[in-house]
Design a protein around this nucleic acid. Structure first.
Length: 215
DNA sequence: CACCAGGCAAGTA
DNA sequence: TACTTGCATGGT
């Protein structure tokens, strides 16, 4: 059984991304930068209360009002600016039409997204995979840490190197990429935090279920 | 109290 | 290229 199958067997389907619309996925991808998803949920709820998980609303609302609503997500001034920057990009390049944006060829769209203020590699890949359904693997700090602790990569592996390694060893399948990243986050949250003082049992080391996690 | 959470941009050498 | 720092709330 490979790593993906082991994780899926252990944790089950993760049903990502937790959102109702594509713009909610994109806003969530920005809001979750360096912050736990729990913090993001209240921020999203505040925006929803104002019916502002919505391109038209996000276009018209003042940046400082976005900042006020998303306060629980942390870095709220930066993130309000980032959300505005994405909406501006969407207006100028795609006339506010997300469907149209997601017709662009994969490599070109990724390059465009990376040019938007506040959109780095993980946010770009999250937008492409979870909102656009492109087969673009999402790497994050958990996946780096997990594959390092599995002894499969060096500790300071670069984003693109791990992304390429995974994409080269998997079928280019949106459903698999979707579940795999979500499963790595689930494993990471529960068993592979930065410090593991309790040395909890990890459900996946060297392709075997339930062995001791290295600390 | 300290540390961490589904990063990124900007500055320096 | 390879560090470093600012950004900020909320849970454990």
């Amino acid at each position: 059984m490979n790593i993906y199958q082991s994780l899926f067997t252990y944790f089950g389907p993760q049903n990502w991304w937790p959102a109702d619309t594509k713009i909610e996925i994109i806003v969530g991808a920005i809001l979750t930068q360096a912050v736990s998803w729990r913090n993001v949920e209240q921020a999203i709820a505040n925006l929803k209360e104002q019916s502002c998980i919505d391109i038209k609303c996000l276009k018209n609302i003042e940046e400082k009002d976005i900042a006020r609503l998303i306060k629980p997500a942390g870095y709220y001034n930066m993130k309000a600016k980032k959300i505005k920057a994405f909406i501006k990009f969407l207006t100028q390049n795609y006339n506010d039409d997300l469907q149209k944006m997601f017709t662009i060829e994969k490599a070109k769209l990724r390059e465009e997204l990376l040019s938007v203020y506040g959109v780095g590699p993980e946010t770009a890949d999250s937008i492409m995979l979870y909102a656009g359904e492109y087969p673009s693997f999402v790497v994050d700090s958990y996946s780096k840490r997990i594959f390092y602790r599995l002894g499969l990569v060096k500790e300071d592996i670069r984003y693109h190197d791990l992304k390429n390694m995974l994409e080269n060893n998997l079928d280019s399948d949106v459903k698999i990429y979707n579940e795999y990243h979500a499963l790595l986050v689930e494993l990471g949250k529960n068993y592979c935090t930065k410090n593991e003082p309790d040395c909890k049992d990890c459900p996946l080391i060297n392709n075997k279920i339930i062995r001791k996690m290295e600390c």
